[in-house]
Write a protein that binds this DNA or RNA. Sequence first.
DNA 1: TATTGTTATACTCTATAACTATA
DNA 2: TATAGTTATAGAGTATAACAATA
Lengths: 161, 161
Amino acid sequence: MPKTPPRTTSSPRPAKSELDHSRLSHLLGFQTSLAHVKLQKAFFSSMKDLDLRPVEFAILVLLAYNDKANQQNLCRSLSLSAPRLALVLDRLQERGLLSRERSDTDRRAHHVVLTAEGRRLALEAERLSHGMEEDILAPLSQGERQILGELLAKIVRGARA
Amino acid sequence: MPKTPPRTTSSPRPAKSELDHSRLSHLLGFQTSLAHVKLQKAFFSSMKDLDLRPVEFAILVLLAYNDKANQQNLCRSLSLSAPRLALVLDRLQERGLLSRERSDTDRRAHHVVLTAEGRRLALEAERLSHGMEEDILAPLSQGERQILGELLAKIVRGARA
DNA sequence: TATTGTTATACTCTATAACTATA
DNA sequence: TATAGTTATAGAGTATAACAATA
């Protein structure tokens, strides 16, 4: 008979008609996935005027602060596959937000660079992004937000204890 | 000219050939999305023998600890759309892991109930899930893991400060 | 040979509307 | 009229293999 470990969170009783999650709540993957749904909604409602999806936003902001980024860099930074990135870049390029320029030092690689309009939009979007998650983070104090960000960053960075 | 707030994390210098993420790191949505990629990989490698995807796992475990769950309950608990849930349940039902039974009190609703095999698999999967994220969480102390889980749970629960 | 990037394909997930059967 | 669930469809995300050009 498999040992049943104690409940990890203390939810006195689930709200009426709702289900008891206590056997899932030990999984960070479960929590991050639900949190992510909320954060995505906030993102889309903030960015709808700029018509930017999360990946597109991230690419523009990365490019605004990184010269000479090639597609490999972007793939690794955003955990994207190369084919996926190529398609996203196609769309941004069609919108006139960036261009791909062959590197002189390694003619296999493309530097991805923002156009003037791309840079303008990147900065506008970055400005908008501050406060974007305010409603979602309302249950947390400023200190808690800080800690949460740092703990997640540690996981993303990975490795060693 | 838009104000450029200070960098939120202190990454002295990005590793060579990698990009500076400091203008994205203030966004929880960015961190959770990258963390989630890692957690997903860990999930699939742990669960591949049981052939369970994250949603399927979550449904089985919820059902193992909640009698009389209907599809609305499951949708709300897992942030799934009703059409999506119906498809996932179809697959689990075809595998003989659960059945849908019309409620006597409201004949529109279906109670979703595990078969004996479904319950066996649910408990097996739950057992496997402890330790599943160990490698990913290695950078965090036990206390940090606890805190991270609680902060995410607060966000998921939502509302009031 | 290995690497950068592209194309093509197939599968999963998500969102929506239209439908049925019950209430 | 509203709710529980289903079906169908289109869009977006992901994974993989095969390819061209360059190193």
